[in-house]
Each structure stands twice: as structure tokens, then as C-alpha cells.
Design a binder for these strands. Structure first.
Length: 498
RNA sequence: GUCCCCGUCGUCUAGCCCGGCCUAGGACAUCGCCCUUUCACGGCGGUAACGCGGGUUCGAAUCCCGCCGGGGACGCCA
């Protein structure tokens, strides 16, 4: 092994809320690096210009800080391999892509997205595995040059052997053999000039001297592409270690549809960062002595890849609750507990967000209790009767809640957007706003007498609102009449969120 | 569909690599009892798993093969 020292990284993509999966992978990279006396790097993979946002990046950094997963190099603090944001490293990728083309390992592809779609569809229809058919690979240098000169948009694709197979060595699984015929001619540089994950990742891991890649299992099948790139460039490949994926209770890959996945949710709910980290460490890994409560320092001390189990662990809130309780009871004295509570929500900035909503609504200060409980609660307890005591019938309420639950996904989370979404839905359902909103007051605030709904939703955050809506939806169930059922389906058809 | 990964209580896992100490251990959840003015905490106990079928072996949760089951990947997303 020619790497001077152990260097690992976490490379999140800032395309949404900070994900527990990111924290989970980060934890393992962090512990491994620290345990080996190495370094842990944070790199932002924002090559998807359409989906990446600065807010998401900021939230990710903040969440990782909250957890205490501190990095040695990364955006903000810099380091010897700066910049650590891929959008700022574009010329590097471009040069490397050009080099591959010049050396005959990659080629320009002028195929349009429409042609590629049609091609894949035809392949699927014919029962074949979808993959690039190599049309542009067969272009003569003259033809290719002409298209280039004519200004036709193009991407750069890597060449892949047509036969034989690739052996990937995984630190946990040993050798994995993957046939080259299952590996596509991956796009490396997109038409907009940005690199794809595969190119940027390999180039950066090399330049940043990453020695060990601990990443999710979902990447196993693209490892051959990465290995090939290292070979094309003549670089030594880092050791690979694919960690089992966190799962929903139904065993599918953890998704916000079925489980709260945002770190912001856990923060808002009042989980202790040390407890969440501890729980994440319990996923797929165990202490040699079997202790279940441990700090990052203890985990670092005992960490070993050999103690990682390969079955995909189900992320179970119940056990997390128990662990969090233990941390609160055993590791915090009264003084510290009070301090945590203050930091959590009884702090100036949170209170000041609530004040404008309650100021005019109290006659005595003690009215504050009932009025603000939704802001200091997780999922508020409601009954079916409460949900149905307005003017909308049961099926209408069910449809409204289901659709709203789906539509909060696409929103920018701010009051005006939330308001527009709910108003539009009311109009669409031909309901009076007042009647339409009533069940939402119940779901979000636990009572029809409450502070303004849209403000409350904004303050509570998408995740908590999602959790409350989900709770209500489970309570009320699907619409019972066929007609409303179809109606719901038609409204939902347009929502294609993950 | 094709390829790849995985398979111990409902859940997280120990054991598996280096077969016998496994009558398979711990934890969460659950059930019961105790403590207790309530609840929680705490204590004690119970229910509960080696996916199936073949090998190999004196002996298999542990090694081999097949099947079945689950998951992931097949994007100008990461």
C-alpha cells in the first residue's frame, strides 16, 4: 500500500435535507480514519447544478457539526487540496476528461437524450439490459471533428471492455466479479461541461489522496467503472469498503416516504446528537464487549472493519428512543439537562419566532402553555373525531391530507409557498378555505383554536409536518368511496416524488 | 428482465473467518411479577431465531452446492 496515511472522506450531495444515511456513512469514515491516526475529509459533490442548492449545503455542514463529526479538510476550513466543492474544480475534471479522449480511453458522444431514451426503451422491450449502443464510438475522427466544429452538443463517455470481467476487492466481502458486459459506457462529462459523479469522484479521491473509500452498498455495481478509470489514469485505487444500507421497516432502502430521514427532524424532535450517533454506530457494527451505549471516542478506540455485519439494518425509532432516554438519564445531570432543553427550543431565537404568533392571542401569560405545545412536541395526539368535526366529510378530509402530504415534498419550505399549496388544493377540491383548513389545524396544532397555520408549519419544518400528516393519514385511512378514491389517485398522479 | 450483494429472535446484534465450549448469548419491543400515591425509571422472569434442501464430517449456525427469500444497481442523479 503506497498511501502515506489513512485518509477517508464523506462526499454528500447538497440536493435536499441532510440525510441520516450521510451521517451514518460519515460516522464510519470518521471512526476509521481517527482510529488509524488518519484524516477525514469533507467534500461537497454539487455537480448536479439543477438540484444542488447552497441552503442544502449549509444545512448538511451544520448537521454534521451538530453531530460532532468534524473534518480535517473541507469547505470553509480549506486544506492542502482545496477547493473542496466540486463545482469549483471544473477545469480539473475537464482536463482529465480531455486527457482520456486524447489517450483513446473515452470518446465524444453526440447522441440526443431523445435518441437515448428510445434506444433504452427498445432494449428493454427486447428483453435486453439497457446500455449505450456505441453509435458515436464508431464515428470516424473526421465525422466526430465535423460535429464538434459544427457546435453540436456532446458528452464524453468512457470506453469499456466488451468482454471479460472485472474483479473488485471489497474489504468486507472479498473479491466480487462483475462482467464487463454489464458495465455501460458511462458518461463522464455532461453536455453542460460538468462531470458526472463517476469522473469527479475518482479524480478527487486521487488528488485528495483518499486511501479508503467507505461508502454505501449501492455503489458496488459501479465500482468497475471506477476501477477502470484509475487504470486509465495510471493511478493506484483506494481500498473499497461497501457498507450495508440503512433500511425502512419493510427492508427497502431508507426513504423519507417511510421513515424520517432528515437530520433536522431528529434535531427538532430533541434527540441528543451523541445518542443519534451512538444509534447509528449500532447499525451494522457492535462493540467487542457488547456494550450498546458508547461515545464516539469509545467507538474510535474499538473500531474495526471486521466487526461490521453485512445484513442491511432496519432503522428502528423505538430503539433509538430507548437509547436517547439512556443518554438523557445517565449522562446528563440536572444542570446539563436544563441546558440541553434551553438549547433545544427554549432559546431566544426559537422563542422570538413564536412570539409574533402568540403575543396578540394571550390574555394572561399562562395561555402560552396550550397555545405553544405544538412547538414543543413531536407528533401531537389527535382523534378521528377531532379530524371529522368540521364541515368536510371523511373522504374529503382523507383526500386533502393525502394530497397535502404528497405536495409538501416539492415545496420550498416557506410560509407563502405552503399557503399557496393549500389554497390551490382547496380550490381544486372546491372547498371553502375555512372548512378545508380546519382538519389541518387539528393535525398540525392539535386543536382548531391555534396560532396561524402557515406560520406554524414553516416554523415546525417540513419533517415534523410530514410526520404529523402521516400520523393523521394513518388514522383516517384511504377514502372509502370508489369515486373519491379515484379522485385521490388522479390528484396524486401528478406527484412523482421519491 | 439482467447483473451484483445479503440471509441468526418482530427489530439491532454476538457467535461464523480458525467446525465441538450453542441446551444459540445480549439489547430493544412485548408479556408477567416486584418496587412505587400515579406515570416513568429500576429489578426479576417469560415468549421468541440459525430461511429450505442436499452434501462434507464422529460432529455444522459455523465449510461446500442448489433452491427460496430480501435488497441494490442498471440515468447527461448522486
Amino acid at each position: 500500500m503506497s498511501f502515506a496515511k489513512v485518509r477517508t472522506r464523506i462526499a454528500p450531495s447538497p440536493t435536499g435535507d441532510p440525510h441520516v444515511g450521510t451521517a451514518y456513512i460519515a460516522l464510519f469514515n470518521y471512526c476509521f480514519a481517527r482510529q488509524q491516526g488518519g484524516e477525514f475529509v469533507l467534500r461537497i459533490e454539487d455537480t448536479d447544478t439543477a438540484r444542488s442548492t447552497a441552503e442544502s449545503e449549509a444545512a448538511i455542514l451544520e448537521s454534521l457539526h451538530w453531530l460532532g463529526l468534524n473534518w480535517n479538510e473541507g469547505p470553509g476550513i480549506g486544506g492542502p487540496h482545496a477547493p473542496y466543492r466540486q463545482s469549483e474544480r471544473n477545469t480539473i475534471y475537464r482536463e482529465h476528461a480531455d486527457r482520456l479522449v486524447a489517450e483513446g480511453h473515452a470518446f465524444r458522444c453526440f447522441c440526443t437524450p431523445a435518441r437515448l431514451d428510445a434506444m433504452r426503451e427498445a432494449q428493454k422491450a427486447a428483453g435486453q439490459r439497457p446500455g449505450y449502443d456505441g453509435l458515436c464510438l464508431r464515428l470516424s475522427p473526421a465525422e466526430s471533428g465535423a460535429k464538434l466544429a459544427a457546435g453540436e452538443p456532446f458528452v464524453i463517455r468512457m470506453k469499456v471492455p466488451s468482454e471479460g470481467s472485472c474483479v473488485i476487492h471489497d474489504l468486507l466481502r472479498g473479491d466480487i466479479v462483475i462482467g464487463w458486459d454489464t458495465v455501460d459506457m458511462q458518461v463522464l462529462l455532461k453536455a453542460d461541461g460538468m462531470p458526472t459523479y463517476h469522473l469527479a469522484n475518482v479524480v478527487d479521491d486521487h488528488l485528495m489522496e483518499i486511501s479508503h473509500i467507505l461508502r454505501g452498498e449501492e455503489w458496488i455495481n459501479s465500482a468497475p467503472k471506477h476501477k477502470l478509470l484509475y487504470e486509465y489514469f495510471g493511478w493506484e485505487m483506494p481500498a473499497l469498503c461497501h457498507l450495508p444500507l440503512l433500511r425502512n421497516p419493510d427492508k427497502s432502502k431508507l426513504s423519507k416516504r417511510k421513515n424520517p430521514t432528515s437530520l433536522l427532524f431528529y434535531q427538532r424532535m430533541g434527540y441528543l446528537p451523541e445518542a443519534l450517533l451512538n444509534y447509528l454506530g449500532l447499525m451494522a457494527w457492535s462493540m467487542p464487549g457488547g456494550e450498546e451505549k458508547f461515545s464516539p471516542a469509545q467507538m474510535i478506540e474499538q473500531f474495526s472493519l471486521e466487526r461490521i455485519s453485512l445484513g442491511g439494518p432496519v432503522f428502528d425509532l423505538t430503539k433509538l428512543d430507548w437509547l436517547n432516554g439512556r443518554w438523557i438519564r445517565e449522562s446528563l445531570d440536572d444542570q446539563q439537562f436544563a441546558e440541553r432543553v434551553r438549547r433545544w427550543a427554549f432559546n431566544e431565537s426559537y422563542l422570538m419566532r413564536l412570539v409574533p404568533l402568540v403575543h396578540s392571542r394571550v390574555s394572561v401569560l399562562s395561555d402560552l402553555g396550550p397555545l405553544t405545545t405544538p412547538f414543543f412536541s413531536g407528533v401531537v395526539q389527535i382523534t378521528l373525531d377531532q379530524l371529522l368535526d368540521g364541515k368536510l366529510d371523511r373522504d374529503a378530509v382523507s383526500v386533502a391530507l393525502h394530497v397535502a402530504l404528497a405536495r409538501i415534498e416539492g415545496l420550498r419550505w416557506e410560509k407563502a409557498e405552503i399557503e399557496k399549496m393549500l389554497r390551490d388544493l382547496a380550490t381544486q377540491m372546491d372547498a371553502k378555505l375555512r372548512d378545508f383548513l380546519r382538519p389541518f389545524f387539528i393535525v398540525i396544532s392539535g386543536s382548531p383554536v391555534s396560532v396561524p397555520l402557515f406560520d406554524a408549519m414553516e416554523i415546525l419544518g417540513r419533517d415534523l409536518c410530514r410526520a404529523r400528516l402521516r400520523h393523521a393519514v394513518a388514522l383516517i385511512g384511504k377514502p372509502q368511496s370508489d369515486e373519491k378514491h379515484k379522485y385521490l389517485k388522479s390528484l396524486l398522479a401528478a406527484e412523482a416524488h421519491d
